[in-house]
Amino acid sequence: MVSSFSEQQLLPLRAALLDRLRELGWREGDNLEFDLRLAKPMSSSLSEASASLVQRQPDLLIAQGSPTLEAMRKYSGAIPVVFLLVADPVELGVVASLSHPGGSLTGFTNFELAVGGKWVDLLKAVDTTIERIVLIANPDNNTSAPFARQIESDGRETGVNVQTIYVGDAGEIERAIRGAGGLPRAGLMTLPDSLPILHQDLIVSLTNELRIPSIHPFRSFPTSGALMSYGLDFPELFREVASYADRILRGTKPADLPVQAPTKFELVINLKTAKLLGIEVPPALLASADEAIE
């Protein structure tokens, strides 16, 4: 498996995947060898990790994220690949269709573009004074532009001006966030991408320092101190990946396994951060949260 999440962030997800594999009869050191390669979310690092893994000629590859899958496809050949967190794999040319992927790749899509409107609505619901949102996006992720266009459109429909800023490193992220901090009634949003995950601590510390309400796709952000997240139940997703891996290892062709869309989402709100930002979370929104961090 190749992932651009950090080791700490991946620990519970790796555990969920291996726990499910054990339930299905696969045990490390017995009939399973699990090789995890962590890479930075840049094409060179992802390509190097993918190439070194493919050289081992594994029975199955797992690719987390669109950039990782793009890198892995250059080397995987006929080795079956289960992907996850890949937005619109048909548009990317990864599979022929969601129901009949064909070839040697199948897996689980990322967020649908329509979820961007939900992020805008939630940020506006937690702080009704918000009039603009700075959206941080990774230019190297080919799903960033369509996601940004959708969120900008959703913002216009609700009277919120969404400004997309493409960033590639910590310095550019800091400039974007400090720019948001200089705007009145502004919030901040990140896209589902490994780049903000890599710089999560920086994003959380700056948004709190500058008193900027923010929303993110990953629950690791509010658990680290950001205001809120609305995203996938990641441990459950990794368990589903394990189930697909089991079926392929037992002889099912990837072409016969439909690409599945996420169905379970969770809202996490950090109440301590809300207090820091001077925000009183509306009772109805708090009641709808899957987790409220005190």
Rank of each mutant, 00 (worst) to 15 (best):
S4N: 11
S6N: 11
S6W: 11
Q8P: 04
Q8H: 13
L10F: 14
P12Y: 03
R14C: 00
A15S: 12
A16N: 01
D19P: 05
L21E: 00
R27E: 13
G29T: 14
L32P: 02
S52D: 04
S52Y: 00
V54C: 08
V54D: 01
V54F: 02
Q55H: 10
L60D: 08
Q64T: 10
L69M: 09
E70N: 13
E70A: 13
E70V: 11
R73P: 06
Y75I: 06
S76Q: 12
G77F: 01
A78W: 05
P80W: 03
A87E: 11
E91L: 08
L92Y: 07
L92A: 15
V94H: 15
V94N: 13
A96R: 15
G103E: 02
S104D: 12
S104Q: 14
T106D: 00
T106K: 00
F108A: 09
N110Y: 06
A114I: 13
A114T: 14
V115K: 04
L122E: 03
L122M: 07
A125C: 02
A125S: 12
V126R: 02
T128R: 14
T129I: 07
I130D: 02
E131Q: 15
P139C: 11
N141R: 05
S144Y: 08
R149G: 04
Q150S: 12
Q150I: 09
S153W: 13
S153V: 07
Q163N: 10
I165Y: 11
A170M: 04
R175I: 10
R175C: 09
I177L: 14
R178K: 13
R178Q: 12
G179F: 15
A180I: 10
L183I: 05
P184C: 01
P184G: 04
R185Q: 10
A186E: 05
L191Q: 10
L198A: 15
S205Y: 03
S205H: 10
N208T: 13
P213K: 08
S214C: 01
S214A: 15
F218V: 12
F218G: 06
S220Y: 14
S220D: 14
F221N: 05
P222H: 00
P222E: 00
P222V: 10
S224R: 15
L227G: 05
Y230A: 01
G231D: 02
L232W: 05
L232G: 10
V241C: 02
V241S: 04
A242I: 06
S243E: 15
A245V: 13
D246W: 02
R247Q: 15
R247L: 09
R247S: 11
I248D: 04
I248Q: 04
P254T: 08
P254E: 03
L257E: 01
Q260L: 02
A261L: 09
A261Y: 08
P262N: 14
T263W: 01
T263Q: 12
K264V: 09
V268G: 07
V268F: 07
I269A: 04
T273W: 01
L277F: 02
L277G: 01
E280K: 12
V281M: 00
P282C: 11
P283N: 08
D290S: 07
